[in-house]
């Protein structure tokens, strides 16, 4: 038996129906007022822009090889990067690490000001006092930069979608959208990212996206006198980088984290983390 209803009574079904209808309408209506640019995903915007400017975006996948056996530790790359990209003091989009090995098995790692001034002085900063007079047995330099990972944790964690990957595999930050939470900085296993104190947004190596989409090389590659940095289109079998990748054994940093870096290394030592 059903309870008699007065004309004012609204059944649950009718009530919920009305709520859903009016709610949906006001949501749609409200979204008209939301800046439509907000609803466009940054990768679409950037890729569209790149495609307008150049044909290079088509079928191109960029790659980067660091040949540690060639690096002479001059610091040109880091200086060029700072000049090209306006990198604030105290931060580095690329840097050079100096590894020095001592007979007792001690390894001293240094990167004074990111290695920008070169390594003319012997390593003193992180040197235990007892090693000061000891002749090192070997040493090498390792330039580092963003790995532009294929499965990159920085894009994964960005809460607002400000970190994104272009069609060419370059990992970028939309500085108009970034909220500056710093989560990507924490999530990057390589210390490639920083919060730019001038813009208060996340910042990082872009492989000089503004240059490479115009057919130029990244500033660090351009300025390297030792050809320790090789950049190019890995999907073109005729490119220099494809040749290098085909004829060398390469490694990536922290492969166990499964981020699949696109920056690959020749001559990496197990001490390099």
């Amino acid at each position: 038996m059903t309870t008699p209803r007065s004309p004012d009574d609204v059944s649950r079904r009718e009530f919920l129906g009305t709520v859903a209808k009016t709610g949906g309408q006001s949501f749609l209506f409200g979204s008209l007022f939301v800046n439509t640019a907000l609803l466009r995903l940054p990768q679409d915007v950037a890729t569209a822009k790149a495609k307008q400017e150049t044909e290079i975006g088509k079928g191109v996948i960029y790659g980067f090889v660091v040949d540690t056996t060639k690096c002479i530790g001059c610091g040109s790359c880091a200086r060029a990067c700072r000049a090209e990209n306006n990198v604030p003091d105290g931060y580095n989009r690329t840097w050079i690490e100096q590894y020095t090995f001592y007979p007792n098995g001690e390894v001293v790692v240094n990167s004074p000001v990111g290695g920008e001034a070169g390594f003319a002085e012997p390593p003193t900063r992180n040197m235990p006092a007892e090693l000061e007079k000891v002749q090192p047995v070997r040493g090498f330099f390792v330039p580092k930069l963003c790995n532009h990972c294929i499965d990159t944790p920085c894009i994964q964690v960005c809460p607002v979608g400000a970190s994104f990957k272009t069609d060419e595999g370059v990992v970028l930050v939309d500085k108009e959208r970034c909220v500056g939470c710093g989560y990507c900085v924490q999530a990057c296993p390589f210390g490639s990212r920083y919060l730019n104190p001038d813009t208060n947004v996340a910042d990082k190596c872009t492989w000089c996206y503004h240059r490479v989409t115009k057919g130029l090389l990244p500033a660090c590659v351009q300025s390297c006198p030792a050809e320790a940095r090789i950049f190019g289109n890995v999907s073109d079998p005729a490119s220099k980088i494809s040749h290098i990748l085909a004829t060398n054994r390469v490694q990536v940093l922290k492969s166990y984290l499964g981020t699949r870096p696109r920056t690959r290394y020749i001559g990496l030592d197990s001490e390099v983390i």
Binding site: L39, C158, V160, R177
Partner: peptide
């Protein structure tokens, strides 16, 4: 932005 353009792979979103 965290509610306007949430990145669904981000825990923080």
């Amino acid at each position: 932005n965290i509610m306007f353009t949430p990145n669904l792979t981000s825990a923080m979103a």
